[in-house]
Simulated assay, not measured.
Amino acid sequence: MNFRLPRLGADPSAPFPDPGLALREPDGLLAFGGCLEPARLLNAYANGIFPWYSEGQPLLWWAPDPRTVFRTGAVRLSSRFRRRLRRSGWTATADTAFDEVIEACATAPRPGQDGTWITEEMLAAYRRLHRLGHAHSVEVRDPSGALVGGIYGVALGRMFFGESMVSLASGGSKAALGALALQLQRWGWPLIDAQVPNAHLDSLGAVSMPRDRFLSMVRELVAVPEERGRWTERFGQVPAQALASATG
């Protein structure tokens, strides 16, 4: 571990270092240590910081520059995939299967990855946030009720911080992201944090945003009052046909 990296203490309410002090290599590494108590996690997200580490590593905190984000009105689904959605019979809901979605995210095989960063400690932490009304899932099911994909993350004010998404059938995660973006746009939430880039996110319309700009938007959006709690009723049911018509 780089000796210059700040170490966080046990107090979950203690402030984080300034994200502008994060390392350039590896990009965005800001601090290590601390805990995953709700107060610590919510403070992190409110300051544009997120935890990311693997089993056997210390708890690592990140604030990369630039930041990968989705504009909620600009998630891109291909014409071919939208044609599939119209025939699929899939339906998206929210917060009806948080545990199932996060478990699937933790255990689904991912090309080029050995193991998962969603440790047992992380699973327990986000389940706590879900029970407190801060963490949410969007789940997509086929007509039989089987889970085909999902996404989960943390909401503060009108800012959604995406954590992970999963496909249990081809395209399931794309449908979950599309449904989330559609509903957030309808609610007036402009941004989904996607943390760091990869080719899959880029293909869905993710863009890079300078960290300073991202942090400025986060400060504005988390300050907007929003009711905390489960999204099941507010989100409703989003049929794939509607999703296919609303995304391009």
Rank of each mutant, 00 (worst) to 15 (best):
G89V: 01
G150P: 04
R128C: 11
G133N: 12
I118F: 08
A181M: 00
L132K: 10
K174T: 03
S208G: 12
A92K: 05
S173M: 01
A169G: 04
T107I: 06
V154M: 08
L129K: 05
A124L: 13
V196F: 13
V166N: 02
V154W: 07
G89Q: 04
G149M: 04
A125N: 12
E120D: 15
G188Y: 12
D142C: 13
T119A: 09
S208F: 11
R211I: 07
V148H: 00
S164P: 03
L215W: 06
H130W: 10
G115L: 10
W117K: 08
L215N: 10
V207R: 13
F214V: 10
G188K: 11
T91G: 02
Q195T: 04
S164C: 04
A155R: 14
L184V: 10
A194W: 09
W189A: 07
F214I: 09
A155H: 06
G149L: 05
H130Q: 09
W117I: 05
S144D: 15
V166K: 00
G153I: 04
V218N: 04
L201S: 10
R127Q: 11
G115C: 08
R186K: 14
H130G: 03
E139V: 13
R131Q: 13
N198D: 15
P190G: 08
D99P: 00
T107A: 13
H134Q: 03
G112K: 15
A104Q: 06
V218C: 11
A181D: 01
A155L: 09
M209L: 14
S88P: 02
D212T: 10
A194C: 15
V138S: 03
I151R: 00
A169L: 15
L180Y: 04
L180N: 08
G157F: 00
D142K: 11
T91D: 08
D193G: 09
T93D: 10
V101R: 00
P210W: 06
S216N: 15
L132C: 07
Y152W: 13
Y152P: 07
T116D: 07
E121H: 12
